[in-house]
Write a protein that binds this DNA or RNA. Structure first.
Lengths: 155, 155
DNA sequence: ATAGATGCAAACTCTTTGCAGGTCG
DNA sequence: CGACCTGCAAAGAGTTTGCATCTAT
């Protein structure tokens, strides 16, 4: 949903500029996350990277995902079954389909008013916010009668 | 933040009415979650319940939390370090303090307009939505200079 | 009486860490 | 060459499950 070509806000060059090495595993891990919009798990990234670099270890995938997220190259998101990563670091909301379990990005609303209202009512300083939507996606709406389920396969 | 007295939307009677036994562990587990607003982890509930019922097992706590959530007596929430539970089943938003890590409830906004806008733009059927706010809570604002941290103690 | 719930211990899954050896710059 | 990074294996944390026993109804 967001173009993934380079000229990305944090391209490969930026990694080097910040003193990180641009190793093969690291480059592939970053590319895999950025090349998909499924909000992949570490296991998903591992499987993908292994196709091009069969000797990569799961530990390296975890170490890099964590590091890349901490440095702002990726976004990190907790989910009932573990951590998921997102190459889209622009502010955006999420839609979870209760029928198929898929997680979609939704462009962010610039809701200044909402933040201001909450800040006033609570006395908190609001630095950021994000909305989570739940419902049925286009594909699932067409399959009427499909009932929401709880356990889905993970990516 | 929400009154926890009985006359709760799903009181103890409702459990029985739905064919579940009202056992001592189960009753205590439900009460512990409802009596706090810290969005407790399973371990927190376990510790609390054990004070009154020292022989309770962690497995029982997990089984009941999962069952009570599935049946709508509690809400369930994923977080970077695992699952958290919430006795407040009314729709509400959340505020996470980036300085101290505490999670606060924020009364829900009835934002019909937001849902309608997203539904129109995406073609999804929106059944529910919730907002997540991030910033600094009142207590932390007073301690100026306190910088946001990543790892906090869990409840 | 009996279906359902419990306690215990073992199993499972996801994630992190220690360390010896490899590699980017 | 040297700091950083990797693969491997083992350890950790959180959660689930099998089973014999117990208990609410």
């Amino acid at each position: 949903m967001i173009p993934k070509k380079d000229g990305h806000p944090h391209g490969h060059e930026t990694l080097r500029a910040r003193g990180f090495r641009l190793t093969e595993p690291r480059r592939l891990i970053l590319d895999v996350v950025r090349a998909t919009d499924v909000h992949p798990t570490a296991a998903f990234v591992y499987r993908r990277v292994r196709k091009k670099l069969p000797r990569v270890s799961l530990a390296t995938v975890y170490r890099n995902l964590r590091m890349l997220a901490a440095e702002g190259f990726l976004a990190e998101r907790a989910d009932a079954a573990g951590m998921r990563f997102d190459g889209n670091t622009l502010p955006h909301d999420h839609f979870t389909c209760l029928a198929c379990g898929r997680l979609y990005d939704v462009p962010a609303r610039a809701d200044r008013a909402v933040r201001a209202r909450v800040a006033t009512r609570t006395g908190f300083e609001i630095l950021n916010h994000r909305a989570e939507f739940y419902g049925r996606c286009g594909a699932c709406r067409r399959q009427t009668g499909r009932s929401p389920v709880k356990g889905q396969r993970r990516s």
